[in-house]
Design a binder for these strands. Structure first.
Length: 516
RNA sequence: GGCGGAGUAGCUCAGUUGGUUAGAGCAGGGGAAUCAUAAUCCUCGUGUCGGGGGUUCGAAUCCCUCCUCCGCUACCA
């Protein structure tokens, strides 16, 4: 099943409003999913929402509705975001769905059967105000002996019965797994962190709670609900039909090729999750990629600062494909990045409107005017012609290699190298001059350019589906001839094919007039 | 404190089996062209490759040391 590709986003916690971070993670997956589909893979692209937990329970109570009705409502925000961003997920898992409860309870049973889970009691310093536990080292002890959390909240020692997962027993096997799969965690620097963490020793993990009800009941012990990550992480196998593993999607798609996550939740995916899976007798995923965070004009983003970036607003201001392009172009994927208004405009105008859009526009306009609005008929190719065409033909290898390690920015750089070369070729060949002096040569030049642009547009489809489709429309490339098997000279544009009237695809951004 | 990563042109970065004059994009200066979304193309850098020391015929690239910045150092989704 080597032509299957299964990738996932984290499931997003419904208590949060969708922000640029959510959009970014899913966008990266979407581009990869689209790329793999174009490249001949049968893709399963999963996203979803995490709808359990105490905070949700409380938020629902505060809103005066039951938790299910509450999550139905807020979960919709994430589906709306996906719609707006043109995300192409194949499935959307909600942890409140029956299929997920079934999967979560089944993995639990497997773990119990294998002796990986035991009942004990969980104790620790708990701050009621923060709804969080703190470790001894995080606390400050006052003169009267009272302990306080870093937030200043008073903490108390609490104990409750809890089931534990024997994570401590998995250190060696995890280390072996990392060693055998050096690309399991990317980027490399994140891998180092995980290795360092694991080599420091692992403690057993509390995997159930009794203090609230909104979650998946522990099989055979309704007093407990499954806690946090065991519930949430299991969504990745819910999505492929677990517990049915012999047939169907699980057999077809598991282990997942990629879990895309933000760097803050790497540990859960790179340590706990493979341990859970191996302990349950299932294969761990092939890769976890931890990407970075965005800042806003150099400032850390936080609710309290009020500088949260709303992806819907960005799309409204700059356009969907422009935003998709910027997010994956501005930053080496994996690094933190800064969203700056001016940087967005520079990319949008400089690279999309000027470099790419204008290349298509100038070529298509000349073709429309000088070639009867049809694909020109080329003569024999010169060295310059072949050089440009070969650059376009060779692009897929570079891009594919980059995509396979989630180097989205590298792929775009490679594509833009050819775009710049194409603009240089236009100036060097000066087809507007040839129009008066040598119509045949002009036809060849415009043909070479059209064919180059066809390749560029095919390759940018994953990033900018709508804009790329419009360029391909203008080249009269049939919709069923837009996958990567149509790259190359064998599927070159047919001379004489009628072309529609060209129109701009990437408008320049104009600052709105400021009121005096 | 421990472990790890980073410090290369004004900005963002590329550059490891050590080897000719260290690269790209953007910004800035100059020029060309006028097909095109006033878009494009060409051209211009005396950069201590963080400092110091060492290995080597030769180091941004290896070793030592120092400085600065950042990440991780468990149960928060």
């Amino acid at each position: 099943m080597s032509n299957r590709y299964y990738l996932t986003t984290p499931i997003y916690y419904v208590n949060d409003a969708p922000h640029i971070g959510h959009a970014y993670t899913t966008l990266a997956c979407d581009v990869l999913a689209r790329f793999k589909r174009l490249d001949g893979f049968i893709v399963k692209f999963l996203t979803g929402t995490d709808e359990h937990g105490q905070k949700v329970e409380k938020s629902a109570a505060a809103a005066g509705i039951d938790p299910k009705a509450f999550t139905d409502k807020v979960s919709q925000n994430f589906r709306d975001l996906a719609e707006t961003m043109n995300f192409s997920h194949d499935d959307f898992v909600r942890t409140t769905e029956d299929r997920h409860k079934l999967a979560a309870q089944e993995i639990w049973k497997r773990l119990v059967e294998r002796g990986e889970i035991y009942l004990d009691s969980y104790s620790g310093w708990y701050a009621v105000r923060d709804e969080a536990f703190y470790t001894e080292g995080e606390l400050t002890t006052g003169p009267d002996g009272t302990k306080t959390a870093p937030s200043g909240a008073e903490v108390e020692w609490v104990e409750e019965p809890s089931y534990f997962f024997r994570l401590s027993a998995w250190q060696d096997r995890l280390e072996k797994f990392y060693e055998d799969h050096p690309d399991f965690i990317l980027p490399k620097t994140r891998r180092n962190e995980v290795l360092s963490f694991v080599s420091g020793g692992l403690q057993d993990l509390s995997v159930s709670r009794t203090t609230f009800k909104w979650g998946v009941p522990v099989p055979g012990d309704d007093a407990h609900i499954m806690y946090v990550w065991l519930d949430a992480l299991t969504n990745y196998i819910t999505g492929v039909g677990f517990p049915e593993i012999e047939t169907g999607e699980f057999a077809e798609f598991w282990p997942a090729n990629l879990h895309m996550v933000g760097k803050d939740i790497l540990r859960f995916h790179a340590v706990y999750w493979p341990a859970f899976l191996m302990a349950a007798g299932l294969e761990p995923p092939k890769r976890v990629f931890a990407h970075g965070w965005w800042t806003n004009e150099g400032e850390k983003i936080s609710k309290s600062l009020g500088n949260v970036i709303d992806p819907l607003e960005l799309v409204e201001t700059f356009g969907l494909d422009q935003v998709r392009y910027f997010l994956l172009r501005e930053v080496p994927f994996g690094n933190d990045g800064d969203f700056a208004h001016q940087a967005m405009i520079n990319r949008m105008n400089g690279e999309l409107a000027n470099d790419y859009g204008n290349l298509a526009q100038r070529v298509l306009s000349m073709t429309a005017k000088n070639c009867d609005g049809a694909v020109p008929k080329p003569g024999s190719f010169t060295g310059a012609d072949d050089a440009l065409l070969n650059a376009a033909y060779g692009l897929i290898d570079t891009v594919r290699e980059a995509m396979d390690v989630q180097a989205f920015h590298t792929a775009l750089e490679a594509i833009w190298t050819v775009i710049r070369a194409a603009n240089g070729y236009v100036d060097a060949q000066a087809p507007w001059k040839l129009a008066k002096e040598d119509q045949e040569r002009m036809a060849t030049v415009l043909y070479v350019l059209a064919e180059t642009i066809r390749h560029l547009a095919l390759l940018t489809q994953a990033y900018m589906p709508d804009a790329s489709a419009r360029i391909l429309d203008q080249l009269a490339v049939p919709e069923d001839a837009r996958t990567f098997e149509f790259l190359g000279a064998n599927h070159a544009l047919e001379p004489g094919t009628a072309l529609p009237k060209p129109e701009g695809v990437f408008p320049r951004y104009q600052e709105p007039e400021k009121e005096a």
